[in-house]
Simulated scan of single mutants.
Amino acid sequence: MKLQNKLKILNDPIYGFISIPSEEIFKIVEHPYFQRLRRITQMGLSYLVYPGAHHTRFHHALGCMHLMQKAVQVLRSKSVEISDQEEDALYKAILLHDIGHGPFSHALEYQIVNGVTHEELSSYFMNHLNNEFNGSLTLAIQIFKGEYHRPFMLELISSQLDMDRLDYLKRDSFYTGVAEGNINSQ
């Protein structure tokens, strides 16, 4: 039987090499729910004005996970206790935070399913994946919903200065050629 290495490294135009931290996260990335993000543009119809803005939610989610890896390293270096389970959950939560986006992202968000946000759809997808992955996303879902007893973890995913915002500012700036969003995420 031939063993297959599931720990992959991707080359991102923004950050360089991004590593997939576990075999299970690689399986999530391979899942059709996540792969559909390859066809969902990050900036909706903005490519009509900025021809280079064809980047996708797939690129963005991987970039966010990379930034979360860096954030966990920095927090641990500052003596913030983060268990291996919390680390894994943070990676899964940020990787899946936008999985509920539909075609053209925010541009059509309320047109496809009236009154339902992409966050609610992301939660639905995450719950379904949690069933498929035998409950291994439970902690990630708690963090994503703000139900975990360490609120700073949600702030890493959704706040005024989170991994989501750090990635989209830098990524959108890069692909549009607009310098205003080119921030230093380090």
Rank of each mutant, 00 (worst) to 15 (best):
L137R: 06
Y168S: 05
E86K: 03
V80C: 07
D164Q: 05
G181Q: 12
D167C: 10
L137W: 10
F152D: 07
Q142W: 00
F152P: 05
G146K: 10
P51W: 08
N114E: 15
S77W: 08
S158Q: 07
K145D: 13
E155T: 04
T117K: 04
L139A: 06
K70P: 00
M68E: 08
S77R: 13
R76T: 08
N127P: 00
I157Q: 07
F125E: 04
L75Q: 11
Y91V: 02
G115K: 13
A107G: 01
L137V: 11
S105C: 14
E119K: 14
H66P: 07
A107W: 01
E132T: 02
H106K: 14
V178M: 10
L96M: 14
A53C: 15
Q142Y: 02
N182A: 12
P151Q: 14
A61F: 13
K145W: 00
L169Y: 03
L108P: 05
S105R: 05
D167I: 01
S136M: 12
R165G: 08
Q69F: 05
A89L: 10
R57K: 07
H101R: 13
G146S: 11
Y168E: 02
D88I: 03
A179E: 15
H55Y: 09
F125H: 11
L156D: 08
G181T: 11
A53Q: 14
H97L: 07
S122M: 04
N131I: 14
G63V: 13
H101T: 10
H66D: 04
G135H: 13
H118C: 06
Y50D: 08
H97M: 12
V80M: 09
D167F: 02
H149F: 06
H128Q: 11
A53M: 15
K92Y: 02
F125Q: 03
S158Y: 12
I143F: 07
